[in-house]
Amino acid sequence: MAIWATIIINGLCTGSLFGLVSAAFSFQFGALRMMNFAYGAFVMVGMYVMYAGIHHFGLHAAAAVPILIVIYFFVGYFLRATLLRSSDPNVQIIITSGVALVLESVVLFIVGALPRSLLAGIPPTWKFPFMGGILVISKLNVLTFAVSSLVLIGFALFLKRTWLGMTIRAVVQQKEAASLMGVDPEKIINVGFGISFLITAIASVMISLQFVLEPTAGHYYQLIGFLVCVIAGMGNLKGGFYAGLLVGLISTMANIFAATWHDAILFILFVVILTFLPNGVFVSRKSISRAV
């Protein structure tokens, strides 16, 4: 019993991380109408930047994280401003695939294919007696859950309450009307893209604390991000968090019962949901732009 409670709690914590990873993509696709296929690659690069900052430049983690976040905002801004100006989805897919190819091969060239890990040893845990057993909760998992939910709540508040957030929503809903109100829609979409990269940076930091670093890790997180978005319905940030929790649970269970088929199970689930419930499992009746 205590073992199952441990598994479920840790699964939910991993799931919150998946929710965070998918939030950036969900916002880019659902709200800004940008297909970002390089987004897994950017998660991977963020992980390596953290690794390099801590192990090679001797930065403290608390200093490396803000630097990464600031860099990523500008990367996102200039990526949209220079390469992704086209609104044709196929062009966006091809260009971002090209960016992903460049990032992956450059990382492969610089660091090699050998997997690395940021943390050495077993992360510290809390132990509680629980229903005749011992409940083991990793402190890192709790931190992940806290950071993910805080970032997502903060992002939702930002979109709802601040001037910039309202401007982004206005541009998403009606570009022409927003530009009549004196807003430059292109610039606002650039800024929105930069902000979505900010979330990518935070997600990559949290992933790098828990999982192995590999040049090809991006593919996996990208598909996880797609899966979560598809379950939640594109652009549905709140549903995305719940869907992330669900995927985390499924992933943990799959790891326990059929570890080797873990990926296959997740991706078949992905195709089945996409085919039969294309609007997502957590569908709200509001339009996508409203939900954002």
Binding site: L223, F226, L227, V230, F270, V271, P278
Partner: peptide, 28 residues
Amino acid sequence: AISSRLTGFFFTISTIALAQVIRTIAMQ
């Protein structure tokens, strides 16, 4: 059959996912 229900971007990501499934089977 999938493309009868999915078009555009959604079709594209389902091809990636199916490719990954086949690759997992080949690996495992």
